[in-house]
Design a protein around this nucleic acid. Structure first.
Lengths: 143, 143
DNA sequence: CCCTAACATTAGAATTATTCTAATCTTATT
DNA sequence: AATAAGATTAGAATAATTCTAATGTTAGGG
């Protein structure tokens, strides 16, 4: 179902467009469509290729290069989190809260682990007292 | 300094060649040279490109494709451990003991953390009781 | 010992993932 | 509504990695 045509003066801006504006991004056609595919459902782990395929299936006119641009821009703005597990491709997580991951080696699938389920009782001091930006725990599952 | 010429009958096989044979690999020129560059010094974090450059500098005649082959073969045989931190390239660690890593985001450098320095007090159960093959902890340093 | 067949290894060519940059689109300002 | 400044897009280029045909190695028979 398509929304009623927007008049030239912006009067009925959608919530999605507003969210993009809030982080300083223009709500362009391509970004709106990709943001909708990304955030319309629950938390997901996607790759540039998988989002590109989702876009094609949804009939969205967008190039793969633009999908990469959008993923990196969204990550820089804190709307996505990049996870590096498999060097052959980048994964992006729509869950940006503190959490960890199970990685199923055979299928390549990722599963979120709530941060309260993992407790780091002892941690080494960071060299030169430099700030820790993030701690990633990946539990690799043989299956 | 070059070792004395080996006679046709293998009498004075080097220790390095013997180690390769032990894991079922032929001690070819290229592999011997790469193994020497990899394991000759202390623990290191290398990339295919960095090892290739080391080889060129050392005057070793080897292709980049062969460097990739050797790194993956050595990893499969347990002589190296692959670490995935940065999706733009694969790192290989000559330290195959249980340990974790600091990752310096600005320089891209890795530093080993002894496994006794990190204590995981609470861990979630693996789904379906599947076996855990490895737990990786990466502490990302903003510097 | 040497020769040969079977298999392992190598590296040039091909592929895949990602980035770059020139062209296009948006938007704030008038 | 027109314009200029800057953001966004996507075709082309690049970089990382893999594939596969050619080459090298080795064990066993002659």
């Amino acid at each position: 179902m398509s929304a009623a045509k927007t008049k030239k003066t912006v009067t009925n801006e959608t919530a999605l467009a507003e969210q993009l504006r809030e982080v300083g991004l223009r709500p362009t056609q391509q970004r709106m469509a990709l943001a909708d595919l990304l955030f319309g459902r629950g938390n997901r782990h996607i790759t540039a290729e998988s989002l590109y395929n989702d876009a094609l299936t949804a009939g969205v006119n967008v190039s793969l290069a633009t999908v990469y641009n959008a993923l990196h821009t969204f990550t820089a703005k804190g709307l996505l989190r990049e996870i590096t597990i498999d060097s052959t491709r980048s994964y992006f997580d729509t869950n940006v809260d503190e959490h960890h991951h199970f990685y199923f080696e055979k299928s390549g699938r990722l599963e979120d682990i709530d941060h309260t389920s993992v407790k780091l009782a002892r941690l080494p001091e960071a060299p030169d007292g430099l700030p820790v930006s993030r701690i990633d725990v990946v539990i690799r599952i043989d299956g």
